[in-house]
Nucleic acid binder design. Structure first.
Lengths: 343, 343
DNA sequence: TTGTCGTGAGAAAACCTTTTACCAAGAAAT
DNA sequence: ATTTCTTGGTAAAAGGTTTTCTCACGACAA
């Protein structure tokens, strides 16, 4: 009843046997015809293909994988609960691999090593061709050892072994984009409000900010939340001294908190202060008033490249190990003022 | 080089042959020992198991699946781009099925029928044991026909065929929870600000609201965004007449917009007005000031049940078709006032 | 006529596991 | 002593596909 009717007896998937019988050839000839190898007459090949298509034959990937040792399946392991990073990455991976007939197992393992091990084992049992390990922090490993697996592993946004290939966004580049944009539109006193000190990417962004902005103001470290954005604004405006005319925030949530706090103080964004965020998390950036100009880490592209790389490794093609930093992109909305510089 | 070293020659996975050889028994004996069937001496069985564990044998799921016609794999199809609904559902599915050795293919198909068909075909080729179709709207079908598949399909948060089993949250119950809570804490003039009229769940919630609240005020329909929350507050407070002392919002984003708008008007939440949201989307609800009391749809539990159901169907166990409405849960934060009624 | 070659296609092995059928040997029953 | 039953285990088939090997047959050259 569920899942399709049985028509005239037992429900059975169509196999290459059926194709062979219908086309009046042997199984091996059918196989060769469909895979365009072996030798046979053009007429035979065409007939087999036509018959196969007519009766709706689709090869059993399990059987094929058993022999070829390729399952056309890869695993995506993540500890990112909210999907903030994982989902765009997954979208990219999936988009890149669907053309190659590869599907993706998604496993969310929180931070539980046991669960992680179970999922890795399950993937291995299912003969995945490769694994992409992704996380929410560059400098944290997944809670499971991926170093001696019989399949290739590539890392995205999480720390891998030195001889592996890791994809990450170029945080320094992102910070540079943000600061340069702010200067181009005429801002000079730029403050950087960011996340916790112990994040690697926080350092990279802060360093790039200092270099690009001339290091006028010290960086303000805090947490990744809106409320920290609020507090930071309170701190700045409650202390004596010149106020900034621009903020570069470590993520969109902080930026949103800051924008809200500024509005509550009667300070106009973008007229009095320009604000740039980081992440381009649509749900936050686009709903802020005014919508945030922010740095996009191009996670989908990152996923696409990670997908193609793990595929290359699975197919035995050589891949240079190391860290690949992908450039960021500035998404201009309204939190900085005119959408062209020097307006 | 990538993916583990080849130690002493060709890298090869350990098969049951290796176990049999190492234990000095035949392949079939080894298989039976490991699967606890067949007859043999306890000593033999234990020895085989020990050897298998020692050399790290794990059965090849492809080979097993080829014979048993079970791949221990299910597909999760979704058109929810942001993962707002999908991710919690997926977490529930995964959690329920990992104990049964079942892994989950996640496929995001946007609203592209061709892409959907490709992914469904790929899943079928990989012999998934079943498919869970999930979406973001109860009354919208996925853009792909799932009605005559050779595997069972269950639906979550999207419309299925009449004879299938569909899981959804009980929107009426959620609305009832919200309104009852507001009345319990002494609120009487409750306004319902919600999403577009053409959502099925909007109707269910609105109807339940009217019934529970006595239908004093008309329902305000709009869109699912913060800005609509703002607008609605402006509309209410700009028009003459008594103001509400409570808002029941159709989702957390609307609620957040409303709370922000109230604050900007100098109206205190929760002192002057209590606000209840819907969805318990942590990222919005917890970051609102004050944090939102909101209705949780128990998506993870929904996912778990959907997972167990598709598993049951895959194993041929009978399952009653129809729609299952899962109860909601009120998550009390600070947007309504004291965390106990009648305080 | 015989030998060689090329062409088209089928047979069989391989991939790995599970399951069914079967066998040999010893124990118990007649 | 012969039959029957139980025990501990093996051999083989099945599942669907790909690939390698082999074969038959007709054409062509010697």
């Amino acid at each position: 009843m569920e899942g399709g009717l049985k028509i005239g007896g037992v429900k059975r998937r169509i196999t290459i046997h059926d194709v062979a019988a219908a086309a009046g050839v042997s199984i091996s000839t059918a196989s060769k015809a469909l895979n365009n190898n072996g030798r046979m007459g053009d007429e035979t090949r065409e007939r087999v293909k036509r018959v196969a298509s007519d009766i709706g034959f689709r090869p059993n990937a399990l059987a094929r994988g058993l022999l070829s040792k390729r399952s056309f399946t890869i695993g995506l392991l993540t500890n990112d609960t909210y999907g903030r990073f994982t989902l765009p990455v997954m979208a990219g991976v999936s988009e890149a691999l669907v053309d190659h007939g590869v599907s993706v197992f998604l496993c969310a393992i929180e931070d539980d090593p046991a669960l992680g091990q179970i999922h890795v084992d399950a993937m291995l049992d299912k003969q995945v061709d490769g694994i992409i390990a992704t996380g929410k922090r560059l400098d944290r490993r997944l809670p499971v050892d991926l170093s001696n697996l019989p399949v290739p592993v590539v890392y995205a946004f999480t720390e891998g072994t030195p001889d592996s290939v890791t994809f990450r966004s170029d945080d320094a580049h992102g910070a540079q984009l943000a600061v340069e944009w702010l200067r181009q539109i005429g801002r000079h006193r730029i403050v950087h409000i960011t996340g916790p000190r112990d994040f690697f990417s926080v350092h990279e962004r802060a360093d790039a900010y200092c270099q690009a902005a001339g290091g006028a103001d010290p960086v303000m470290y805090g947490v990744w939340s809106e409320s920290w954005g609020h507090e930071a604004i309170a701190e700045i405006w409650n202390r004596p001294g010149e106020k900034p005319d621009a903020l570069f925030c470590g993520n969109d949530q902080i930026a949103r908190g800051a924008v809200d706090a500024l509005r509550e103080r009667g300070i106009k964004v973008p007229d009095d202060v320009s604000v740039v965020g980081f992440d381009n998390w649509e749900i936050v950036a686009a709903q802020t008033r005014p919508p945030l100009t922010t740095v996009d880490m191009e996670l989908k592209e990152l996923g696409r490249q990670a997908g193609l790389t793990v595929l290359a490794l699975a197919e035995g093609r050589p891949v240079e190990p190391g860290v690949r930093k992908l450039p960021c992109r500035l998404v201009v909305r309204q939190s900085c003022g005119g959408d062209s510089p020097r307006e």
